[in-house]
Design a binder for these strands. Structure first.
Lengths: 202, 202
DNA sequence: AAATGGTTTAACCAAGTAGTTAAAATTGTG
DNA sequence: CACAATTTTAACTACTTGGTTAAACCATTT
């Protein structure tokens, strides 16, 4: 048993599978391609993950956790809604620049099979509670206009995630290359919180 | 040759294929399922559309046109940015309520194969020109704050499309059923333009 | 009736796919 | 070395899938 290794085989498989599943989706991915990407053979792949579904859920679970954990956390650490929004947006965009296809992957697969996959995003519900507290505080101090907190949260998520989800369409319509896209996201770390707060400040 | 028929067979196939492709995506869809949904057999399906790729592109082309045509049009008919935004958002949300999976379908497939599919959304580039004119006019009249027009357009699209794209996640986190989702979208026909305009008004 | 074109039937093919198996090879461990 | 766990090899299965073929069927038109 290899105890001291830079990387366990199971992790190498999960990394390779994440790359393939993210790019091609569950239906389009091939077990052979995952094995190749992991530098192993199909037999060993099935030795670690019995079938495609289990492998996929392993990948999805990890991706869902990476998406939600660090991002909601910054909200929990904030005690002011405006400041919380600023930090949330920054954290979200920074995170997505590291893994730009993540939101599209999660959303695409959630649409395909919500029944079995929704349980993996319950982390999001905890973050929602933090958010609601911050919102209630700001409202009671009359610092924001009258707005449905759920709707505000949808708007925040939309403004963060959509550029990544619609990236091909967006870069095509505006004639942007990868570098221009990156610059745009960097700008949005400032402009998106401004856009939101200007809209809700009492 | 059946000249007088409620619906041509080719159209029946395209309708069935749209339903299947939208639900399962190009990779997940099966030609047999399309044939069944169209009430014909596989041989006739290939008689009308030589292979899966051609059938898919036929569907995608139609979907992309339905997505962009009527929506950009209301912008062209407006001569004031604020009014244009109001009408654009209303038209977009109304349209999406009729075909809620459309944006997710287009975006998902564009991410999978941008190279061959991006040409089908060039309609969007024409709409962009209308929008830029309205924006320039409002700016020259000092009615809006300093903001990158491309970024504003991204924000508008994001606030319109994201609830539909992220629908399963959204309804799950907020514990909404189909009716609650519909009500939320109806509310957004008013609140989204307000949200945007409050943010950009000089 | 003959011809035409859309449609069905039913079988077929070649390639690909997830998953299995069993034996051999490799590697680390005591 | 001996033992056990990991990894490879290579073949094989059962099944699915896109696509093809050829003959027959049927409704209209000519």
């Amino acid at each position: 048993m290899a105890t001291v290794k830079e990387e366990t085989t199971e992790q190498r498989i999960l990394d390779a599978a994440r790359e393939v599943f993210t790019r091609k989706g569950m239906a389009g991915a091939r077990m052979q391609e995952v094995a190749d990407a992991a530098g192993i053979n199909k037999a060993l792949l099935h030795y670690y993950f019995r079938d495609k579904q289990r492998l996929f859920e392993g990948v999805f679970k990890g991706s869902a956790e990476r998406q939600f954990s660090c991002i909601w956390q910054v909200l929990a650490e904030s005690d002011d809604l405006f400041r919380g929004i600023e930090r949330f947006v920054s954290a979200y965009l920074d995170r997505m620049l590291e893994e730009p296809m993540l939101p599209q992957f999660l959303i695409s697969e959630l649409n395909r099979d919500p029944k079995t996959l929704l349980e993996y995003i319950d982390r999001g519900k905890a973050g929602r509670a933090h958010y609601l507290r911050l919102f209630e505080k700001a409202r009671s101090e009359h610092r924001i206009i009258d707005i449905d907190p759920r709707e505000l949260l949808v708007n925040i998520m939309a403004l963060c995630a959509h550029p990544f989800i619609a990236r091909p369409m967006l870069t095509h319509i505006h004639g942007m290359n990868d570098e221009a896209f990156r610059r745009m996201i960097q700008k949005r770390r400032k402009t998106v919180p401004e856009f939101i707060i200007r809209s809700i400040r009492a």
